[in-house]
Design a protein around this nucleic acid. Structure first.
Length: 201
DNA sequence: CTCCGGTCTA
DNA sequence: TAGACCGGAG
């Protein structure tokens, strides 16, 4: 039998509304997301935990409040501010991407995953995540944590690797049920608070 | 000390 | 499509 996506969507969003985590890059429940901040946070979070990212995110956004400011910064200052986060190619691509969006896109990030995917430093995961969180566009938001969460929510018995096509489809379908950004963040929070890699509740 | 992971590159 | 990139966690 096929999973009841509307029902799972209601479960996810209901849980999220009561348990959502608060982060410097997250808009309040009623506020609109700032695409620049969503993008910056997702790049930082690619291989780095929330606790480590938080102070870096605050320093970056204080110093460079929007994509034009970041684009105008000298590359070596961006690298210096990034020092300690690791994977420095992310910082170089971050700056390239900011320059591109600032000069060629009037400072506005594309709204759809396929266009976002063209930008430096944005792969399949980040494209879907930014489109969902910043623009409420449905898409296959899927990283290692969401794979684990969805596999459990759907009660899949196969190893994650074999289930990936099904998990991608599920993430696409769930974000298409409405509130795409909150749905994506609900899966992330569930993965961090409840359905953890070890010692799951 | 080994494992882990998005994106880019070859 | 495998390996490199880095730092944090186990």
């Amino acid at each position: 039998m096929q999973p009841d996506m509307p029902q799972i969507s209601r479960f996810l969003l209901g849980w999220y509304d009561r348990n959502r985590r608060s982060f410097p890059w997250r808009a309040g429940a009623a506020d609109a997301a700032d695409p620049y901040r969503v993008w910056l946070s997702e790049i930082m979070l690619q291989q780095t935990g929330t606790a480590t990212v938080a102070p870096y995110f605050v320093r970056f956004t204080t110093r460079w409040p929007d994509v034009h400011a970041l684009a105008a910064a000298p590359a070596d200052e961006v690298l210096r501010e990034w020092a300690g986060l690791g994977y420095y190619a992310r910082a170089r691509n971050l700056h390239k991407c900011a320059a591109l969006v600032s000069s060629q896109m009037k400072g506005e990030f594309p709204r759809d995953p396929d266009s976002l995917r063209e930008l430096p430093g944005i792969g399949p995961y980040t494209a879907a995540a930014v489109a969902a969180i910043a623009f409420d566009q449905p898409g296959p938001v899927l990283d290692g944590n969401i794979e684990r969460v969805l596999s459990r929510v759907l009660a899949l018995a196969q190893p994650l690797k074999q289930s990936r096509p099904e998990l991608r489809q599920a993430s696409q379908a769930l974000t298409a049920c409405g509130r795409a950004g909150d749905t994506a963040q609900a899966m992330m929070d569930l993965g961090a608070l409840i359905c953890r890699p070890r010692a799951p509740d």
